[in-house]
Deep mutational scan, measured.
Amino acid sequence: RTAFSSEQLARLKREFNENRYLTERRRQQLSSELGLNEAQIKIWFQNKRA
């Protein structure tokens, strides 16, 4: 289980509010910017949509 920092969570929530689905390219960008792997971001979005 991933423990996200408050900064990472704030960024993910802001991104989710703008778009509930990420393109592969956007997921790669977020992964690089947040220091998370793409799978972690993908799962976070899946869980948030559920």
Rank of each mutant, 00 (worst) to 15 (best):
5 S>Y: 02
42 K>Q: 13
10 A>E: 14
20 R>Q: 13
14 R>K: 14
44 W>I: 02
1 R>H: 15
13 K>H: 15
9 L>R: 06
13 K>M: 14
13 K>F: 10
37 N>I: 05
9 L>Q: 05
38 E>K: 05
18 E>M: 10
13 K>E: 15
38 E>A: 07
39 A>R: 09
20 R>M: 10
30 L>I: 07
43 I>S: 10
33 E>Y: 03
41 I>V: 07
25 R>T: 13
29 Q>A: 12
14 R>V: 12
44 W>A: 02
1 R>V: 14
31 S>V: 07
35 G>W: 02
22 L>T: 03
36 L>T: 03
31 S>R: 03
18 E>L: 11
17 N>H: 10
40 Q>T: 13
15 E>F: 04
29 Q>M: 09
12 L>G: 00
37 N>L: 11
40 Q>V: 15
10 A>C: 10
21 Y>M: 06
6 S>M: 10
41 I>P: 00
5 S>F: 03
25 R>H: 10
11 R>D: 03
16 F>K: 02
25 R>A: 15
26 R>M: 08
25 R>K: 14
30 L>D: 00
43 I>L: 13
1 R>E: 15
31 S>T: 05
47 N>F: 11
36 L>E: 01
28 Q>L: 09
27 R>V: 15
21 Y>H: 10
16 F>P: 00
35 G>N: 08
34 L>M: 07
34 L>V: 04
22 L>V: 05
3 A>L: 10
49 R>T: 09
10 A>I: 08
10 A>P: 01
10 A>Y: 06
40 Q>F: 11
29 Q>E: 11
2 T>N: 12
23 T>K: 03
38 E>W: 05
18 E>W: 06
1 R>N: 15
32 S>F: 13
49 R>S: 11
49 R>W: 12
8 Q>W: 02
47 N>S: 10
2 T>F: 14
10 A>S: 09
18 E>G: 04
32 S>N: 06
40 Q>K: 06
14 R>G: 05
6 S>H: 10
43 I>H: 11
20 R>P: 15
15 E>L: 04
48 K>R: 13
11 R>E: 06
16 F>S: 02
22 L>F: 03
7 E>G: 05
49 R>Y: 08
45 F>A: 01
39 A>F: 12
26 R>Y: 06
45 F>W: 15
2 T>E: 14
2 T>A: 07
47 N>W: 15
24 E>Q: 12
50 A>Y: 05
34 L>W: 02
24 E>M: 09
39 A>W: 15
9 L>G: 01
9 L>D: 05
50 A>T: 08
13 K>Y: 14
26 R>G: 05
50 A>C: 11
19 N>Q: 04
32 S>D: 11
8 Q>C: 06
24 E>W: 07
6 S>W: 09
28 Q>R: 11
1 R>D: 15
10 A>R: 08
27 R>W: 09
17 N>T: 10
23 T>D: 12
40 Q>E: 14
17 N>F: 11
45 F>Q: 01
19 N>E: 04
45 F>K: 00
47 N>I: 13
5 S>K: 04
47 N>R: 13
50 A>I: 10
5 S>H: 03
6 S>L: 10
45 F>M: 03
32 S>K: 14
36 L>P: 00
11 R>H: 06
41 I>M: 03
47 N>M: 13
47 N>K: 12
3 A>R: 11
4 F>C: 05
36 L>N: 00
19 N>W: 04
13 K>N: 15
28 Q>W: 06
5 S>N: 10
17 N>E: 14
34 L>P: 00
16 F>I: 03
34 L>E: 00
20 R>V: 07
33 E>A: 05
4 F>H: 02
13 K>S: 12
33 E>M: 05
45 F>S: 01
1 R>P: 15
20 R>L: 04
23 T>G: 07
11 R>A: 12
10 A>Q: 09
18 E>N: 09
7 E>K: 08
43 I>M: 11
20 R>W: 08
37 N>S: 15
10 A>M: 10
6 S>Y: 11
4 F>R: 02
43 I>C: 11
26 R>T: 06
15 E>S: 04
43 I>Q: 12
31 S>F: 03
22 L>K: 00
7 E>P: 04
8 Q>H: 05
5 S>C: 06
38 E>I: 07
46 Q>W: 11
43 I>N: 10
44 W>Y: 08
50 A>S: 10
29 Q>F: 08
9 L>E: 10
42 K>P: 00
27 R>H: 04
41 I>D: 00
29 Q>N: 06
26 R>K: 12
42 K>G: 08
28 Q>M: 09
14 R>P: 01
12 L>P: 00
21 Y>A: 05
12 L>R: 01
32 S>V: 14
33 E>T: 04
37 N>Y: 06
50 A>Q: 11
40 Q>H: 09
25 R>Y: 11
28 Q>Y: 08
28 Q>K: 15
40 Q>N: 05
8 Q>V: 10
16 F>R: 02
33 E>H: 04
8 Q>R: 02
28 Q>I: 10
17 N>Y: 10
41 I>W: 02
37 N>W: 04
46 Q>S: 09
18 E>T: 08
13 K>G: 08
10 A>V: 08
13 K>R: 11
46 Q>H: 11
29 Q>V: 07
11 R>G: 06
45 F>G: 00
31 S>K: 04
35 G>D: 06
4 F>Y: 08
11 R>K: 09
18 E>K: 13
15 E>G: 02
27 R>T: 15
33 E>K: 03
8 Q>A: 07
24 E>Y: 08
31 S>E: 06
48 K>F: 09
28 Q>G: 06
35 G>C: 06
50 A>F: 10
50 A>G: 08
9 L>P: 00
22 L>S: 02
46 Q>V: 07
48 K>G: 06
5 S>M: 03
22 L>Y: 01
16 F>D: 01
15 E>Y: 04
49 R>G: 08
50 A>H: 12
36 L>Y: 01
38 E>T: 06
10 A>K: 08
40 Q>W: 11
14 R>Q: 14
5 S>V: 03
16 F>A: 02
42 K>H: 15
28 Q>C: 07
24 E>A: 13
20 R>G: 07
36 L>Q: 01
42 K>C: 13
36 L>W: 02
45 F>E: 02
1 R>M: 15
24 E>D: 13
44 W>G: 00
49 R>L: 11
45 F>P: 00
12 L>I: 03
43 I>K: 10
36 L>I: 12
39 A>Q: 14
9 L>W: 05
28 Q>D: 04
7 E>A: 08
49 R>M: 12
15 E>A: 11
20 R>N: 12
19 N>C: 10
49 R>E: 08
48 K>W: 09
19 N>P: 02
34 L>N: 01
38 E>C: 04
33 E>V: 05
33 E>R: 02
5 S>E: 03
13 K>T: 15
48 K>A: 15
49 R>V: 10
8 Q>E: 03
42 K>W: 14
33 E>Q: 05
21 Y>C: 09
43 I>V: 10
40 Q>G: 03
43 I>A: 13
41 I>H: 00
37 N>H: 12
29 Q>H: 06
18 E>P: 01
7 E>D: 10
2 T>R: 09
45 F>V: 01
29 Q>R: 10
12 L>V: 01
11 R>Y: 06
43 I>E: 15
